[in-house]
Design a protein around this nucleic acid. Structure first.
Lengths: 213, 213
DNA sequence: CTGTGATCGTGACGGGCCGTCATCAGGGCC
DNA sequence: GGCCCTGATGACGGCCCGTCACGATCACAG
């Protein structure tokens, strides 16, 4: 009665999906990433070991090294992942913006919302005051910085704003956003709008006072 | 013919100095600190091991642990040391200041000069792009932050400046100083005055635009 | 369907660094 | 000079690391 012999079972719409080798590869890579996020959140970054991470996946210890060189590299990969997800958001703000204030407000609000969600999804359980390492400038994070730099340049030029030392200015903007963002996360309730308003006004007020190079 | 029997040799002016035990203790502690500064500078923080540090002092490995619990603790001690030396400088600026701009300019110039000297004395030789860890908020560093916080409060009140969210504001000031300071160190020649001018104007311009809580 | 080669998953292994501890030299004190 | 006690010493066990030879499984050709 079965029609199996005539119509071998196949995912009809996924006929051309990659082979099993390729699928387990991406699955393993993702499993390691997920496990690492959990472990870092529970044990703290410093205390976590490669084996803590790999144990949670059920894979063998050696398998870890087929995907990443060290726990630092997994951490970077997680950071990269975050940056990769944030980049299009930032780009959209940049393209939508009609003036500097609009861009800045949009970008910072987007960043703070993003930060809040990341914070909650990591469920960080700092072991007695351990400071989580600030993400190192991985390629993707560097790309975000560069994008901020470029967007600032574009929007400022469009506004016919006076020339400023863009390197310093971008660094200062990122610094304010980072640090006010961190402080924001420590308060209850978390007030992204208030924090964003603060950061935006600070930068916006500072800009016209800057020295012209 | 010798008079030793009658006048035992002694440091005449240092009769009451601490005993040998105490002296070797502070000497060892200092030796470890010095060695650590060198090793961190040469190998980079991550690659350095406790044994790299202790080897350079000629002491035995176990001796290290009579003074510090880990390389992290030595690093913190070095950071603490820096903060301890900077604090009186900051305090002097705070007491000398007559208005907010004066205080800010004095403090930031002082910080940037301090930063430059520290940078040169550490002789940092980053191993292929390794990022030196940002100093964690050790007690002494926290004290510096608190002092900045207090000084801002004092000077702003004296100036009858509008009330602001001091936590955010202090965080933002420190962030700008830190990040612009870092960028400053990457340029040749190192221009502390230019960087300080930038940071001061940025903050000074931002202040009046801030939301009133 | 079967044979073959390539691709990983596996976990045991050697090595390095860690932090401890029993031991002992020597400074403090009577 | 003799006794006590602090602190230097380096050998040691343990943990985690990164590797590697092996074997299972997949891809693919015939």
């Amino acid at each position: 009665m079965s029609n199996i012999a005539f119509f071998p079972v196949r995912e009809p719409s996924e006929d051309n999906r990659p082979g099993k080798r390729e699928r387990t590869k991406v699955a393993n890579r993702q499993a390691i990433l997920d496990a690492a996020r959990e472990v870092f959140g529970e044990l703290g970054y410093e205390a976590s070991t490669v084996r803590d991470i790999i144990r949670r996946t059920g894979l063998a210890s050696g398998t870890f090294y087929n995907y990443y060189k060290s726990k630092e590299e997994v951490f970077d990969a997680l950071a990269d992942d975050g940056a990769r997800r944030f980049r299009p958001i930032l780009r959209a703000e940049s393209e939508r913006a009609v003036d500097f204030e609009g861009f800045l407000r949009g970008a910072i609000r987007a960043y703070f919302h993003f930060l809040r969600e990341e914070h909650e999804s990591w469920r960080i359980n700092r072991p007695a005051g351990e400071v989580f390492p600030h993400a190192r400038p991985t390629p993707e994070i560097q790309a975000v910085f560069d994008e901020v730099h470029a967007a600032l340049a574009k929007v400022l030029e469009h506004d016919h704003a006076p020339a400023v030392d863009l390197d310093y200015f971008a660094a200062a903007c990122i610094a304010v956003a980072r640090e006010v963002g961190d402080k924001m996360l420590e308060r209850r309730p978390i007030d992204t709008e208030g924090a964003a308003d603060f950061a935006v006004r600070m930068i916006l007020g500072g800009l016209p006072a800057l020295p012209r190079p």
